[in-house]
Amino acid sequence: MSYQLQFGSVLANLDELLDGAATTLWMGAATILLGSVLGIVLAILRTSGPALCRRLIDGYVEIVRNTPFLVQLFFIFFGLPSIGIRLLPIEAALLALVFNLGGYATEIVRAGIESIHPGQIEAGLSLGLSRWRIYRHVVIVPALERVYPALSSQSVLALLGTSVVSQISVVELTAVGNTIQSATYRAFEVYIVITVLYLGLAFASRGAFWLIGLAAFSRRRRLGARA
């Protein structure tokens, strides 16, 4: 038995695949935006908030980093209804994705903040800068710049991680692929096409991160650094 690739029946459903890719893209973009903001806020609280607050954030980060994403997703979608919280699939998916990326982003940004040498802050003080300006210009922005590559790579991972939410009936790229696959039985062809679409999405988001990096960090622009 030899296998012949037949893309016809798969490409006939290209519109649905592109719709799925669009859902993946906007879900990924929303996750990256909300997850990064959550991570930055929690990292600031983790490094300079009250002790109780720090311990709570530590707990959150450990839960996120030490449980599988699929379990987090099922917990929110199948588990929470037991205590009366019933979310739509897309809501549960976004909540789980942001919850997950937020944990990793917190840890990444925290590492960046802690990498700022105390000498830098003392230099700021000796120049007579206010505490707020020191925190903003000497700590946060250089910290973010330092961890930007790690943060963008974690974000691309989050974008690709959206494929898992097909498990709770969200109709994104993988779900559309699986539906076409189950109707046409052209599994190999379907997965070739969605692989190409995911590659496109991942490269596009890497490009976007590179541009945002250039715009946000002026030193990066001068050095011609790569994202």
Binding site: F74, F77, F78, G79, P81, S82, R86, P89, S166, Q167, I168, S169, V171, A175, N178, T179
Partner: peptide, 17 residues
């Protein structure tokens, strides 16, 4: 709403999703 396996579909029914 399409799920990936029968136990997920059953779970969705039991949890009222």
């Amino acid at each position: 709403m399409r799920f990936e396996d029968d136990s997920s579909t059953a779970q969705a029914l039991l949890s009222g999703q």
